[in-house]
Amino acid sequence: MLNLHKDHKNLVLLAFTVFVVLSIGVAILPAYQMEEYEPIPGMKDLTEQEKRGLSLYVAEGCVACHTQQVRNIEMDKTWGERPSLASDYYYSKKRMDVWRQSPSLLGSERTGPDLTDIGNRQPSEDWHLLHLYNPRLVVEASVMPQYSWMFHKTDTSYVEVDDVTLPRSITKMEGSDVIVASQDALDLVVYLKSLQQFSFEDYDPPMDFIPALPKEENVTTGKTPQKSKGAGLYQSNCAACHQVTGRGVKGAFPPLAGSLIVNDNNPEMLIKIILMGYDAREEYGVMPALGDNLTDEEIKAITDHERSSWGNNAPEVSLEMITRLRDSVTNAKIQ
């Protein structure tokens, strides 16, 4: 038995061991686990100029007053069309190297507005430059400090072809003076304009993302026209999120391959999700209701496809059950 109050060597060794174990379990492992998600199909990586702007955003402490997260609450609908997903941050949160994790930009204060979708709300480069130079020029009640060191005043005769100048009518420069934006200001504005919430409604998967539909074959080959119909309907309505492989997107959309809900012998929950939508898991995006867009026969084709693909092996769904559940959902809405 250790006599730690006298054996200082073992006491220090024990304390160090506990520190290492806690550091690995509380800090290191969670940091790597948080990276186990994928970019949303169709999202683009940051350009080199946008990455420089990102570094300036961090260096200038913008995160102290601005958030980049849309929460799943009513008041946050001002900032984006949907709640933020882990996959939204894939490219801005990539690990710098094995030792360094890129800084979190989610923020916790909203002294200023959320910037998740600022690139869509304010697409004008001139507006952003004026806002950095003197926020009160474009937002009279703004409490944001001026970033005037990112600009310099010069005479118009010294302005070069590639220089970006601020409108003299707004900055109220006297004589031939003009305000020129530095490269840092331009890089930061490019980054801010890149902050645009990805819209799935406008996403059109590329052709290589959607494989060719299986050809209709007779019953002797094991593939029926109904199954081909289900595959086509799945690709049209579900594949952009859950992917044609059924694997989903980590941090955005749950996998259907191996899903307990999809493979349940009682498919009521799966049918209700398709009819009514689903928003019970914060780590995934909201599933929209498809009941108004699909007939009972189409829902049956989709569910049968999902329950018999990607290794799933569940029995077919009865059309009568889908009709019954649709009626119950409709009656619940009326009441």
Rank of each mutant, 00 (worst) to 15 (best):
A15S: 11
Q33Y: 13
A181C: 07
R281A: 12
H8F: 12
D327H: 15
D162Q: 10
V249A: 04
A301P: 08
L256T: 09
R324Q: 15
L54H: 08
L105G: 01
T323H: 11
L11F: 13
C62V: 09
P225G: 11
Y234F: 15
M173L: 06
R247K: 15
L166G: 11
L195E: 04
G291R: 04
Y133W: 14
C241S: 13
T221E: 14
N237S: 09
K193L: 02
R281G: 05
S259F: 02
T78P: 00
D117I: 00
T295I: 11
K229Y: 05
D177H: 04
I302W: 02
G25E: 05
S228P: 00
Y191K: 01
G25N: 08
K227M: 12
V143Y: 09
S308N: 11
L4P: 14
G222M: 05
R110Q: 13
E316G: 13
Q33T: 08
G230T: 06
R324D: 14
R326G: 03
N120C: 03
S259H: 03
H128C: 01
R110E: 14
V70S: 02
L106D: 01
E217D: 08
K153H: 06
Y234A: 10
M269A: 12
K51W: 00
K44G: 05
M173Y: 01
G285V: 04
S102K: 11
K250C: 06
K51R: 15
M96K: 14
S259N: 14
D88E: 04
A31K: 07
P225H: 07
G119Q: 04
G119P: 01
L186R: 11
I334R: 15
R281K: 14
L137D: 06
T323E: 14
W79A: 12
I322D: 10
V317P: 04
L13I: 14
L260A: 15
E35Y: 07
D296C: 03
E283Y: 07
P211V: 12
D76C: 02
Q235P: 00
V21M: 11
V159D: 06
E320G: 10
M43F: 00
S124T: 07
L85P: 00
